[in-house]
């Protein structure tokens, strides 16, 4: 299960939205396969009855009061944007 073919890497690259050349796909397939081989040893661990550990913080979610404490900082929100117009971010036309 741990050998990645080029098509799988193409799909991962697409899901990651990273442009990869054909040669790049081959190289990545090799690199990623090596990494997967490396983590393969986990499969031998007995985790019967073991709950996944998603956070080591021994806490529950703190709740915030429902108050408007933020916003009205349009300039700050937009100040680093590569392209803006009329208070909006601008991107290539999205077709649905």
């Amino acid at each position: 299960m741990s050998s990645l073919d080029k098509e799988t890497v193409r799909r991962i690259a697409y899901l990651s939205r990273i442009n990869v050349s054909e040669e790049g796909l081959t190289e990545l397939a090799g690199d990623l396969t090596r990494i997967l081989d490396f983590v393969e040893e986990l499969q031998e661990v007995d985790v019967e009855g073991c709950e996944p550990l998603t956070s080591v913080a021994d806490l529950t979610l703190p709740l915030r009061k429902d108050e408007v404490t933020d916003g009205n900082i349009q300039q700050k929100v937009l100040s680093n944007a590569p392209m803006t117009d009329a208070g909006c971010f601008v991107v290539p036309k999205v077709v649905e």
Binding site: G71, N72, I73, Q74, V77, G87, C88, F89
Partner: peptide, 19 residues
């Protein structure tokens, strides 16, 4: 998940926090 207002109809990107 942020303290920005939920109001409708305000100027674009004004009810927006950095979050």
């Amino acid at each position: 998940f942020s303290g920005a207002s939920t109001k409708f109809g305000n100027e674009a990107n004004s009810n927006v926090s950095l979050v």
